[in-house]
């Protein structure tokens, strides 16, 4: 065989590249230092913006007192349950509308228009329906997680390469097998993009839910901090949201990279 064999060689990664992500921390670090300096010299009044050390101390003492764990745990639990519910329903409706034109024409306009309703608008209705308990919050979060998953998965399935579907048809793979072997893998990248968006929105919706009707959770800490005039608690809660939001995004990104490796 006189054929040239080309094989894409992966370049051995340079050691320096492994630490490249640290560059992303430079600007935030500078901002924290700047924040500290500005508060210390009195540009910001401490009762409006406490310094970073104050915030850290507050979080630390709450953690030591065992107060923080409860708030964080309940928020994580709500977000997880909401994501689970929202993603499952999103996959279900995404699959049905992606596969069946009739289902798409019936349901897609509805979903497309409801996705534009602001999250906070749902809160009073959900409180009325589900009461002040967990149901309302989880449903609200699920609603947030649902839309990106639904939209991306449905589109992903509809836009599976016609050429590949023809291959499945020519080789008589059968409807179910071609779903399993062609359609689902082809739509998987879109699904993961949707899940990533859904997880992001879940965090947005949990704040909405907890700000308004909760006696526990990071969102409750936020509003409690306002009531008690504790800006350190408010900033601390924002940082907690930032931390867990980023953590969950990194986790989904990790799954994404692992699953979509072609």
């Amino acid at each position: 065989m006189a054929t040239v064999r080309k094989r894409a060689l992966r370049r051995p990664e340079l050691d320096l590249d492994r630490f490249r992500w640290l560059l992303g921390l430079v600007v935030p670090a500078i901002l924290v230092v700047l924040w500290h300096v500005l508060v210390t010299v009195g540009v910001f009044a401490p009762h409006q913006l406490p310094g970073p050390l104050t915030v850290a101390t507050t979080l630390y003492s709450m953690a030591v007192a065992g107060e923080l764990t409860g708030h964080v745990a309940i928020t994580l639990q709500r977000v997880a349950a909401g994501i689970l519910l929202g993603v499952s329903v999103g996959i279900l409706f995404g699959a049905v509308t992606g596969l069946y034109g009739l289902a798409h024409d019936l349901l897609d306009p509805l979903f497309q228009s409801t996705k534009n309703i602001p999250s906070l608008a749902w809160v009073p209705l959900f409180l009325l329906w589900f009461g002040i308990g967990e149901g309302a919050k989880v449903t609200l979060i699920a609603l947030g997680a649902f839309f990106p998953v639904y939209l991306n998965f449905s589109t992903g399935i509809k836009e599976v390469d016609r050429d590949l579907l023809e291959v499945a048809e020519v080789y008589d793979i059968g409807r179910l097998e071609s779903l399993r072997r062609v359609v689902v893998p082809a739509a998987l990248p879109s699904l993961l993009v949707g899940i990533r968006g859904g997880v992001g929105l879940a965090w947005m919706f949990v704040v909405a839910a907890e700000l308004i009707a909760a006696s526990q959770g990071i969102g409750f800490l936020l509003s409690d901090g306002r009531v008690m005039s504790r800006p350190d608690v408010i900033v601390g809660s924002i940082l907690l949201f930032a931390f867990f939001g980023n953590l969950s995004d990194l986790a989904v990104k990790g799954v994404q990279r692992r699953v979509v490796d072609w």
């Binding site: 050429d163 590949l164 291959v167 080789y171 793979i173 072997r181 062609v182 082809a186 998987l188």
Partner: peptide
């Protein structure tokens, strides 16, 4: 059996899986 103008291989499947598709 059909060989299309473009290879039309499943990008997520290995060479072996692609050959075995039918």
């Amino acid at each position: 059996g059909m060989v299309f103008q473009e290879p039309r291989l499943l990008p997520w499947a290995t060479v072996r899986e692609n050959v075995a598709v039918g």
